[in-house]
Design a protein around this nucleic acid. Structure first.
Lengths: 340, 340
DNA sequence: TTATAAAATTTAATCGATTAAGCTTTGGGC
DNA sequence: GCCCAAAGCTTAATCGATTAAATTTTATAA
């Protein structure tokens, strides 16, 4: 192992104290009255040796790590992956690193990871909360850590939240179905009390009432562990039992995928036998035959707001982001699967 | 901020020394002759307070962080995302955390991130190398860090590499095309000297020669930054200029997607006008109409081998994984897009 | 020439753990 | 009663930075 050079090695070589080196490297040369000549000597020597301060030691002393902990539901989910990518890029520019982890919506895992993040002394948190993690998040805030939630939130917590108008997203999709003469519109969702799913469901019911339709609802108990086959089987069953359905709105990414698989297995044609809209767009939806209509979330905007809010308190004076919920609009991307 | 409790606080409260606490918490009670009674007292008190040792301090002292740095091409790429997820899960079980970052195949970014990983004192590296990062990796090895590469490697480096048989993967696909009477088989790839792409190209040429066919090759200069539109446009152009093509093999994930888009835009039918196979399977390929034949990489196996090799030296005695290249077999998933 | 202020740097404590080496206490053997 | 070993802890150095306070050097004024 290459002998690691420490600030003391540098100091010895230049015959000055470690403090001087530290001041220069932290841009406090002027403030601490280090002569320009000395500053140059230090800078040159450090550059020549390619010395890099030990972040761990620095972190221990300052209590800061320049790392942001990011907890999402699944890093393999294209929606979260896309956001992660953009957030990472922005953080990079601001000299922060992102430390990701996935929870698979499991509270135990989320709790463990938050603990690990704390141990690593991350400076701030970006979290897609799992159900039941409320107290842990409250704890983080009590301890004055900046926390930004996205995708969903706890109305009872004074966090900063970035979400989309899930109610309206679903409502727009329903309106589109109605406009195209669909009458028996089903909604396939998962059993979850979290805000984003609740709002989507409300959007469905609202539209159903407004247009005087009959609700056809399928709520699947999804535990995150069971594979997509189970989802496909359940949806297949649901569609068979409700042959009157002429349109389906899937409440998530993966439900849409499993749903399309189910429809394929049943040999139904889209949109002839059944029209389809998915919540969350997907790079591939435009390639399907027919292409799939989707409620797209503004990924770029979400990412930017998340970083903006977090950075505001990381760099600024405020301790935590003000309690506020920023609601962004979704966009219905109309493709072939939803129009006769 | 909640006053952080340190090992010294615990010691003071129990009226013992910090060393005793440390020994107990690190399971060295017996070895260090701590009485069972004391051990219990410490354990109970620690549990009651919910004390957690400061990992940063621990890391500074031991030089270990229990973190593995993982550098992939793009976290939004389903192939890498899937591997990341499995690796993360395995690491979690072994009490290691994964610190991901994406390079977008940009060497400067890769270099920066490796630097950041070093600063954070990660214990080991899992890397999908960018071109030109050879020296930086050699440096890591010189400094005795465990390094495992996957997906591609540098033949000149004595690293441990986990790759698939790219040559054979393409060859199998070509054989399949030939078996189904396709004669004018095109290969669409990117301009890259890296092993995985080189081997795929070699596989193509080998098959072309063996079956006495004429090569129809398209090599796209892909800089990672330009969007998929550029790829689509180039492929479209290529297909228009070579109307004799009756089958296309796409060398990567995203090329296949852009290629399918191009084919769609040209109004060609699959596999009637042109048959298609993609390298890398995709959750959605089975849902396309027609479903898309693909060369699937054994994601689970790759992940397991990567972790196995890395863990061998992280926990074991060996300093670095032995220089070896583990070659796994791909599997041709035959679907509708490749058979008349 | 001496006192004093300003400039330039150093000293040393600190962050919170780990761990080799040292120090008491207890009990057994002769 | 004396010596020694084992048992059971504690001491103190260390990892590599940061930073308030102290110290030394230099310049200026009286």
């Amino acid at each position: 192992m290459k002998k690691k050079v420490s600030i003391h090695d540098i100091a010895r070589q230049l015959n000055v104290s470690a403090a001087t080196i530290s001041f220069v490297l932290n841009g406090k040369a002027t403030e601490k009255r280090i002569s320009e000549e000395m500053e140059q000597r230090v800078l040159n020597h450090v550059k020549e040796l390619g010395y890099r301060p030990n972040r761990v030691a620095k972190s221990l002393r300052t209590g800061k790590s320049k790392i942001i902990g990011m907890l999402v539901e699944g890093i393999a989910d294209p929606f979260f992956a896309a956001i992660a990518r953009i957030v990472e890029e922005q953080a990079y520019k601001l000299d922060y690193k992102i430390f990701y982890a996935s929870t698979e919506n499991d509270t135990r895992v989320a709790r463990d990871v938050i603990g690990a993040f704390r141990d690593t002394q991350v400076d701030g948190y970006i979290i897609v909360p799992t159900p039941g993690i409320e107290e842990d998040i409250q704890q983080l805030m009590d301890d004055n850590f900046p926390v930004v939630l996205f995708d969903r939130y706890f109305p009872g917590l004074a966090t900063c939240n970035i979400v989309v108008d899930n109610f309206d997203g679903v409502y727009q999709a329903m309106r589109h179905f109605v406009k195209h003469q669909y009458k028996n519109i089903a909604f396939v969702t998962i059993h979850a009390a979290q805000t984003q799913m609740r709002d989507r469901l409300n959007g469905y019911h609202h539209a159903i009432n407004e247009y005087g339709l009959t609700p056809i609802l399928k709520t699947i108990g999804f535990d995150g562990k069971s594979g997509p086959e189970k989802l496909t089987a359940e949806i297949k069953h649901f569609l068979q039992e409700n042959p009157q359905i002429d349109a389906v709105l899937f409440a998530t990414n993966y439900l849409a995928i499993s749903g399309l698989e189910a429809i394929k297995q049943l040999g139904l044609s889209i949109p002839g036998d059944v029209a389809v809209i998915g919540f969350d767009d997907n790079t591939h939806f435009s390639l399907f035959s027919p292409s799939i209509t989707a409620v797209a979330q503004p990924i770029q905007e979400i990412s930017e707001h998340v970083m903006q809010q977090l950075m505001a308190c990381l760099t600024g004076t405020e301790k935590a982001p003000a309690k506020k919920t920023i609601v962004l609009q979704t966009k219905l991307i109309i493709r072939e699967s939803s129009q006769k």
